[in-house]
Structure formats: C-alpha cells, structure tokens
Computed example of a mutant assay.
Amino acid sequence: MKIKKVDVYAARLPLKEPFIISYVRLDDMPTIFTRIETDEGLVGWGEAVPDQNVTGETWESTYQIIKNELAPMLIDQSPFAVDSIHNMFNRKIYGAPSAKAALDIALYDLMGKITGQPVYQLIGGKSHEQLQVPQVISIKDPEEMAKDARDYVASGFRNIKIKVGTTAADDIVRIKAVRQAIGKEVQLRVDANQGWSRIEALKVIRETVDCDVDWYEQPVKEHDLKSLKAIKEVSHANIMIDEGVHTIHDLVYVVEMGAADMLNIKLMKSGGIYPALALANLAEACNMPCQVGSMVESAIGTMAGAHLAMSRSIIETNEMVGPLMFRKDVAIVHYNGDTIELSNAPGLGIKVDEDYIKEITHF
C-alpha cells in the first residue's frame, strides 16, 4: 500500500473566547490540516498548530513548507515507513516541527486504519485507566480567573491550570485568588510561558508557597537553562520545562544540567508522535515525569496527543483541552466529566467533518 495523494488546508477555528498567554492573544486559532490518501482509498488526518514564538513557524510558512517541501516526498511511500520518512524530512529542512507533525500524525492515523487498531495500541498499548484533563484559564484579571476556576470546579474539574507571565506582583495575586476560589482539594498548576525573569520567578514561587502549586511551568526564557536550574534548586515545588525542549538533543542538555523536574512534550514542538516517543523514552530512563501538552489543537491533534499519553506510563498528565475551547470543532471528541475518552476505533478514532474543514479553509 502506497501514498498517492496529500491535501493541505490552512484553516482558522473559532474560539469560545480569546486565548491570552504571556506573549500573544488569539481570537481564533490558525491551524493546518493534512489529508493523506493511499492507493486503496484509506485516509489519514493530521494537524499543525504552529507558534512563531515557540516553534519558529508561522501559519503561512507552515502551509508552504508542508505543501511544497514535505508533502511531495510522501508520494509512493509506505505509510509505515515512519523512521525513513522523518529522516527524509530532516535532511530536506531543518526544524519546522509542526509541519512535520501534521504529516506524522496523519501517517499514524493511516497505520491504525490499515491495521484496524487504535494508535495507542501501535505505540505501547494502554498504560492508564483514564486520562484526566484540566481546565486551562488564560490571563485575565484575578477576579475573572478566580470565577472561571470556581465555575470549572463546580462542573466537575479536579485540575486547574492558569496562564500567567505578566508582572510578578500581578501574577502572585492571580495565583492566590484562584487557589482561594477552588479550595485545597483541587490541583493547581501555573504556567508562565517564559514570561518572568529569574528574580521575578523566585519572587512568585516564594510568595505563593502557601498556594500548594503542583508545578511552575517554563518560568523563564526557553534558552535560559542556568536560570531554570537555579530556580529548581531552591523551589518548594516542581519545575516543568516546556518551550526549552523541542528535540531529544535539547532534553539531553536539560538532564545533564539538572535544569528541570518535569517535561512537557508537545507534538508541535517535537515533530509528531514518532519523535515524541523518543522524548518519553529518554525521560523515563531519567525518571522525569512527563505531560503531553497542547497548542490548542483541534480534535485531530488532541486525539494524537491523547493516544501518546495513553501509551506511556511516564506521561502522567496531559492537557488535551483544545476541543473544549472551540465553538465548533472538525470532529467530535468525547469527554466524560474531566476525562477524555479513547475508543477502540482504528487510527485516531474520530470521524473528521471534511465539509466543515473546507468551510473554514482560507487557502
């Protein structure tokens, strides 16, 4: 069975409300969908959600790279030749991880459909009974964030993650307000998205010691591993690295330096499921708990991340929340309270609405 066709769609998904983090405000979510078809008529779907501040890619550049550089290389390839395909991609172009992820995810969707197996069965099997998801609250006034958190907990969520990364003083107020709103039993996670200096990070962590934060994620700039290590050494809570690790080579440096306690794996940073598995394996060898994070992907990218999270015991948490944030998605993802459901259906286990994708496609 060979690949005969690759279609690429640059679309924008409507958000329920603006998504605001330390470096950007998004009123809708620009994304790229890929559709790979075999000579026997089977179809696999993938997705890229580039972030020029994280992956170094724009929406437009990612579309062009997939369409003109990477997709043509797949024609007449076997969908199972994932290692060979990634090597070809990497020889062709440096970086461009979300572009590569869009095709990698579609290949895994295809492999699952060809074999009649869900993706998680192809990459390790079921390592968890369920995948519990948090609710993610973007940057707002402290009172608004506290109200959102209170409402989410009332609706059954047991984990709250808040976006911060403005000023230390304002973020301390935000963290304290949310903790007070949700009580002591609900887990609280804090993500600065590189928004603090070393001094600001230390101040926030010190002054929120009574807030029982599970971990502080990427407090400083992605390249500043020395500051991250210094923060980790004096922190009462775990420090998670996110933007600072894209590839397995990055993770080697982090481990050697002892710069973080935990790792946030994102398919859009790593280049897809195949290289993300390498990150999880190295992290497991180093006893570094992992999370599968999200760039606020549609059902396609979300389910790819969910299958990855299900397949590895070292991946202890996830943020498969994208579908909860869209007014309308390209496929239905089933949530049971605050858990995301994976079926035994082959591939990613979702039915993609091709008509809707074409409706929201810009080019």
Rank of each mutant, 00 (worst) to 15 (best):
E129I: 12
Y63T: 05
G125F: 08
V49F: 06
G41R: 00
I65E: 01
I85T: 01
P72E: 08
I32T: 12
S84D: 13
T62W: 00
T38V: 00
G125H: 10
I36H: 10
L103Q: 11
A106G: 07
L131S: 01
W45P: 00
G95W: 11
S78D: 13
P97K: 10
T115W: 08
G41I: 06
E60M: 13
E60V: 12
G56I: 01
I85Y: 11
P134G: 09
R91P: 03
I114H: 03
T31Q: 05
T55N: 01
Q52K: 14
G125Y: 02
F33E: 07
D83K: 14
V119Q: 11
I114M: 13
T55D: 01
V43A: 03
E60K: 14
I36F: 02
L131Y: 10
W59L: 04
F89R: 09
H128F: 14
M111E: 11
V49T: 02
K126E: 15
P50G: 05
I105R: 09
W45Q: 03
S78I: 06
G56P: 02
N87C: 15
I123T: 04
Q132F: 08
K67C: 00
G56H: 07
R91K: 15
L107T: 10
T58E: 11
S127N: 15
I105A: 07
E37M: 06
Q117G: 13
T58S: 14
T58L: 08
L122A: 05
Q117K: 15
L42H: 06
L107W: 04
E57K: 08
D104K: 06
G112D: 02
G124A: 08
A71L: 12
E47A: 10
G46Y: 04
H86E: 04
I114F: 05
T31A: 13
P50H: 07
G46E: 04
E69F: 14
D104F: 02
I75R: 04
A96D: 06
W59T: 00
P118Y: 13
V133W: 08
Q132D: 07
A48W: 05
T31S: 13
Q64R: 15
Y63N: 02
G44Y: 10
L74M: 02
M111S: 08
M111H: 00
Q132C: 09
G95V: 05
E40S: 07
R91W: 14
V119S: 03
G46Q: 06
V133N: 09
L74T: 08
V43K: 02
I66W: 08
I93T: 14
Q117T: 14
E47T: 03
N90V: 06
T31I: 15
I93Q: 06
S78G: 06
I105W: 01
D104E: 01
P97I: 04
D104C: 08
G125M: 12
A96C: 14
P72R: 13
T55L: 03
G125W: 09
A48L: 03
D109W: 03
S61C: 07
Y120A: 00
D104T: 11
G56W: 00
H128Y: 12
K126L: 14
Q130E: 15
M73H: 02
P50I: 01
P134C: 11
K92W: 10
G112L: 04
G116E: 05
P30Q: 07
A96H: 13
G116C: 06
M111D: 01
Q77W: 14
K113C: 09
H86G: 05
Y63L: 12
N68P: 12
L42M: 12
K100S: 04
K92F: 09
N87E: 15
A102S: 02
W59C: 00
T62H: 02
